[in-house]
Design a binder for these strands. Structure first.
Lengths: 138, 138
DNA sequence: GTAATCTCCGTACATAGGTACGGAGTCAAG
DNA sequence: CTTGACTCCGTACCTATGTACGGAGATTAC
């Protein structure tokens, strides 16, 4: 039993769209599959697993380009390359968290000021965005 | 002395590109300016200030659409509208921080495992991405 | 007057990751 | 055989926020 699938079955099994499968092939993430006389692509379980790999890596913030690199790793230096990439992503994520925390703090201060002062007829949020030397600046 | 500026001077003063100014006008964020016989747009200091408002709001995560709404606020209900929008952005940012923290944790665990185990010839990062029931799953 | 720079406008392009479409061919079930 | 579903492929489209281009007109400085 060969378990060969056409593209629709693969897409359904892997939880993506047909167009996504074609897109991944064009992008080099999936190999050009074997094709019978019909011209229909023929996939196996390894392709399902490969798409799952892609999707898992995406949830961790790896771009498709990153993922293409990870998928190519196979050799004695694989782990150090993957390690370095993951470390780089880790730093990017940490930077992004810090940036968002700064934004969160500024927004929080704006919201609080609005709640304290909104009786005065001037909006502290609009004021702080309108002027450079606002009390919100840190 | 009128202090009128053509588009290049406005762009330079406001710290954006000429194309950006034209884009903001098309997007409705800047008003159609007065034009002499030359057909050249004529700007004043208020336009500089308006662009600064836009840029400040952008750094806080407001989209151009959000900002267009903020720029229109002028009236007794302005502050509550701005407050609600800022509160909404605050929640979005907090959600995003939590999501990134989860990603950070997963990446950190991967990196650590790689550093502990990379002598064995199999890469824990690749392994964890390749299989559903990995030790990295939380 | 000349040359360089600026401006205009409509259109196209970039990014990353998809998604949709239309015409034609293939497959499977009744 | 017919019909409906699936597939193919090349092209176009979406999102949000810009950026670039090319031909033509206007301005500025020497």
């Amino acid at each position: 039993m060969k378990n060969r699938m056409t593209i629709g079955r693969l897409a359904e099994t892997a939880g993506v769209g047909v167009e996504t499968v074609r897109f991944y092939q064009r992008a080099g993430l999936l190999a050009e599959p074997k094709r019978p006389v019909s011209g229909y692509r023929e996939y196996g379980e390894a392709d399902t697993r490969r798409i799952h790999f892609i999707k898992r890596a995406q949830t961790l913030g790896f771009s498709l380009e990153d993922i293409a690199g990870l998928l190519q790793l196979d050799g004695p230096h694989s782990c150090s390359v993957a390690h370095d990439l993951a470390l780089e992503k880790l730093h990017i994520v940490e930077d992004k968290i810090r940036s968002l925390e700064s934004i969160r703090d500024a927004l929080w201060q704006m919201v609080r000021q609005c709640e304290l002062k909104h009786r005065r007829g001037t909006c502290p949020i609009i004021q702080s965005l309108a002027h450079r030397d606002s009390s919100v600046s840190r």
